[in-house]
Design a protein around this nucleic acid. Structure first.
Lengths: 210, 210
DNA sequence: AGGGCCTTGTTATATATTTGACAGTCTTTC
DNA sequence: GAAAGACTGTCAAATATATAACAAGGCCCT
């Protein structure tokens, strides 16, 4: 808890900085000013400086920011200094899609297993990761120090999974089911509510046509 | 453009209201007060009343809101009064997952086709929807009045798709590729940046452990 | 090595968003 | 049908977030 009061709005911009800095790094760009970055990323230069300054003075007057250093610093802030063991619950299309994303692995999110209740998929190997029976879930995640669970089940199965998770040492849930999980403990929950997002598209579409 | 200045923050809460109201409707709950809704949905009662009041006085003093009416009104606001034709570009796991979500269809997002460049998947049928060659894309979306495209390609393919889209009558993009598309026209772009979201999880995880 | 130019860090200002308060009105009950 | 209670709609206040402004310090060129 070293950081004082960083607002969530700032936090949600950090991954975007991280992404753009990675791209610059790949393109051999060594330095960047808040003004230049502003043009690329679409935030104001002022906001960029203020965002970054929440975490320390990473820049240098008259020069700007060193891309490599800044990338590394933001990585540290985002917790990318060590790997995290993860599992996926729900081995349907979405679960399989996530299992195949190599970028998650590259960032340190290490998939240890997948789980399902459907006998038809239990035993399958997706991208070299085995689909296990949900019965083994609690034992497995505790034994393998799993810290994050991606919930890719149907709406109805999700709360049940959340209940199981609360009996384990798991610390965070990445939830793709269209439901707000009821969690008592201080487990971190991050939702991807696809439908909610799609409905904002139709809202803007409607507005645009009027 | 009848609505004055509704903030995006409000818009992004509407789908959540919609979701909760649907649930109440399914459970035969006829009326709801902002106070009760507040308890369920987690916004303050004051915020709920103010949000809803942006669009008109849907409630009644001393009574609250009629669930069915409010559900319907929010549906209208969100543009759910008519179907939208959509296509998916990228028939990998993620594209297939989206093709299989019946809830999108139920809300009126009608999948007309999928597209890919990979000969191995072209010709397949996913949930009764054919995967077409990307060569046919522009012709198809114009002929079938497609308004929304879900981009489920890799990072590198996405901009190319966006460029093609800009030559058509398509009005909105739902982008799952980890890149910010460069769009000149006034096409609506809504991003699902999974990696960005996952990185906030690791941030909060790190914070929680310190 | 010195001066002009850049660019940051930071403070001040403006804007946006959320919360609180309450008058007015409809419901419900007796 | 009258009085008590329950809510909304709305205005005001508080908080949060974003933008602008600028002094101070390092860079870069001559």
């Amino acid at each position: 808890m070293k950081d004082k009061n960083i607002s969530v709005a700032v936090i949600r911009r950090l991954p975007k900085y991280h992404r753009y800095l990675k791209e610059m790094l790949d393109n051999d760009i060594k330095r960047i000013s808040s003004k230049e970055l502003s043009k690329m990323i679409g935030f104001t230069a002022s906001q960029i400086r203020q965002d970054l300054n929440n975490f320390g003075g990473f820049g240098q007057q008259g020069y700007g920011y060193n891309v490599e250093d800044l990338y590394s610093e933001i990585g540290k802030i985002l917790g990318l200094t060590r790997p995290y063991n993860v599992v996926i619950v729900g081995a349907g299309n979405l679960g399989q899609a996530l299992a195949n994303y190599s970028s998650f692995d590259r960032l340190g999110f290490k998939l240890q297993a997948m789980f399902d209740v459907n006998p038809k998929v239990i035993g399958l190997k997706i991208n070299n990761i085995e689909v296990l029976d949900m019965d083994q879930f609690e034992q497995f995640v505790n034994d393998h120090n799993v810290e994050i669970v991606y919930i890719c089940t149907s709406r109805d199965g999700a709360q049940e999974v959340a209940d199981k998770i609360q009996k384990t040492k798991v610390r965070a849930i990445w939830n793709f089911a269209p439901v707000d999980l009821k969690i008592k403990s201080d487990i971190i929950v991050e939702n991807i509510h696809l439908i909610d997002n799609l409905l904002t598209v139709s809202y803007f579409l409607k507005e645009n046509l009027e």
